[in-house]
Design a protein around this nucleic acid. Structure first.
Lengths: 216, 216
DNA sequence: TCATCAATAAGTCAAATGCCTTATTTTCTA
DNA sequence: TAGAAAATAAGGCATTTGACTTATTGATGA
């Protein structure tokens, strides 16, 4: 089986290629590209590999855009995303771009090799957390017709005002000034917000509030 | 680990239970229900199992409806669908009902046992063809309307990765750990980000990056 | 009317952050 | 191939933040 790798980090790329030498009976690493542009150019100008292992964060052209291009030109060519990032957004975009699998870089080499075989047999290799996130994404995207948003976490009106200020990056003093209260009070409100949202810093609070449409 | 099985076919149920005796150190089959109604009544009136292996086609109440009921009453209870059916309709409905995994009955017993452990660690066991179908379902169910727009502020690739981490509320150390670099370097990158985005704290940086679609 | 809760205020203290300087290595490009 | 840009690393220092404690007031509701 002919495998190509798109990975900008030299160390990681070499490490993967080296580890694959164990499976040299089965897999041949036919190319290693340093970015999305290189891998697209490679498949356009060379005999097609069976599978591409694709990093996401790469210069010139990222892995998701490269996947999109390659997938539209060669739908048969299987692409497995291999990255450290497991956030919903990237996962979602990778799937839309046409990736056939999504593995995290901390998977043992055996799992990656297994994934390549799986993908060539019509399967979809996914790391455990990824599989779980995929189900949730599907569930959420299907329910998006009748949803009104998220929880309100029983936040009080004042706490939501505080969150609005946090969103602007105001510190305790600035927030206190805006709301005509003492900075100590602001701190107390923020502590209560953290407890209710189950977070422990401002960014997480703001992100969670945005995601749950508590603030816009 | 306490496992319950809902399976109407006596032969199959006994066969599975028998095969599980190999893993009796790890798994205890606490109950075998003959239909959906029985499994729902069981979880309502007995100590909760950790995992339920759920067939779909069953009399009285099918596995999908049973999954829905159990999942809404006990969201922590993991349910793995174990069936011969792999059609999109059933898969889709099972996911919506809240199933945490979907395995085909022809999987070897080892894979099923592995799936139980996976599901208890937050993963989502899926047979190869199921995983593949899930990706397709997700892809089709959301043909998104992607639009671009916004400055990139000449941020380097690394700086964008840093921003991705900041979005999660990671501190310097956690970010450094994620990106395999020193916390000092993270701080330097963040300083450069602040200068380029013309902000002076993490929240403002994340908000500006989100607004300009530098990150999502 | 008694209890609960939200909002207010104030304080301690360790840890994290923002802002500054310096310096080496790597990568890219003119 | 030389210089620029980016990434890396380290450390100082004042400020901010997060996690605690304690306490008063006013509103809501059972």
């Amino acid at each position: 089986m002919r495998v190509a790798i798109a990975e900008d980090n030299d160390y990681l790329a070499k490490s993967i290629i080296e580890k694959f030498s164990i499976f040299k009976e089965k897999f041949e690493i036919v190319h290693r590209a340093k970015n999305g542009k290189e891998i697209v150019e490679y498949v356009l100008n060379n005999p097609q590999p069976d599978v591409i292992l694709m990093d996401i964060e790469m210069p010139e052209l990222d892995g998701i855009k490269a996947t999109e291009l390659i997938n539209s030109a060669f739908p048969e060519l299987k692409i497995i995303i291999l990255t450290v990032f497991d956030d919903d957004e990237k996962l979602f975009n990778a799937i839309l771009a046409g990736a056939s699998g999504y593995l995290l870089k901390d998977e043992p080499i055996g799992k990656i090799a297994e994934g390549i075989e799986l993908v060539l047999n019509g399967g979809a290799p996914m790391s455990a957390t990824i599989a779980s996130k995929t189900l949730n994404l599907l569930k959420n995207s299907a329910q998006s017709t009748n949803n009104q948003g998220g929880n309100d976490f029983n936040l009080s009106r004042r706490e939501i005002e505080i969150l609005e200020c946090l969103k602007f990056g105001y510190d305790y003093n600035k927030t206190a000034e805006k709301l005509f209260i003492s900075p100590f009070t602001v701190r107390k409100h923020i502590e209560n917000i953290y407890r209710k949202l189950q977070v422990n810093n401002k960014i997480q609070a703001v992100q969670k509030a945005l995601q749950n449409k508590i603030i816009r």
